[in-house]
Nucleic acid binder design. Sequence first.
DNA 1: TTCCTTTAGTTAGCTATCTAACTATATAAT
DNA 2: ATTATATAGTTAGATAGCTAACTAAAGGAA
Lengths: 152, 152
Amino acid sequence: MSEMPTAETPESPIYLFFNELGIMEQLVTTQLERVLPGGLTKSQFGVLNHMVRLGRLESPAELASAFQVSRPTMTNTVQKLLAKGYVEIVPHASDSRSKIVKITEAGVAIRSEALKALAPLFERIGISLGESLFEEAVSLLQKVRVYLDENR
Amino acid sequence: MSEMPTAETPESPIYLFFNELGIMEQLVTTQLERVLPGGLTKSQFGVLNHMVRLGRLESPAELASAFQVSRPTMTNTVQKLLAKGYVEIVPHASDSRSKIVKITEAGVAIRSEALKALAPLFERIGISLGESLFEEAVSLLQKVRVYLDENR
DNA sequence: TTCCTTTAGTTAGCTATCTAACTATATAAT
DNA sequence: ATTATATAGTTAGATAGCTAACTAAAGGAA
């Protein structure tokens, strides 16, 4: 009752990492959304980009899993994209519980525009910090992600 | 109009990094909040922890700057902490626009409890992945953060 | 002194995210 | 065939975050 033991946590590098992660994510999200066209959010762009890159047809559940968000969250994102005409929803052929999200012409176009809008930002960052820094960082992040994903 | 040029973006390591960042942040937030006591969110815990560690009195604006969130966001977080009795708000001595956020006894106590709740999680992660991985990652993240912060 | 600009905090209205709970369909077990 | 369990999608209600716009106070310039 006399003194507080102050040495409770020696500022674990793990907590520092989590903290830094949160701050970074904040900065990145706001900066990306500042330049994305048509009021696209980072999540909405992420889904469009994912669909173009993979070229594969996926259900909302598969998309949710790819981005590590809950199914209700992906429902929401897909509905926003649907309202903007960037995707269409078609029923799954063999499983009537499921749906298939297809990107539209407009979706492909806005994704292309978004890439053009992001390019200068990425270029500046690449010049200033070097792309290899990001390759290293990605490989570290992936290790942590895989662990968290498996031990959830 | 015939074929789409598919090589629009050679999947920049920078975008991969941003993407990985978002997914990680998702996982970390949900896992931290699953173990935090008293319905503390990651942000609320972050603020309490910050105040204990620095021991310095800060205004909402200074807290917002430390966590790179907007002032309205910090207003919200502080109000949640206030409602739970973990902080109190006192007027600033010389500047009557400003306020000072002070952590309460209850705030110190719940922060301490939170550390105990987080410890096993951090320990497991540290054993599995090694703390040095996180030290490396933090130093990389900080470089990027500083850049984004300065070129905003 | 008076006016202009900046800063602190808040309010309003939006999106993204979560969990809990619900419906419907599919699949396995009895 | 019936029942139980698991999965897909949605709805409801919560928090965190943003920008825009507002009030109040501080500080500098005319």
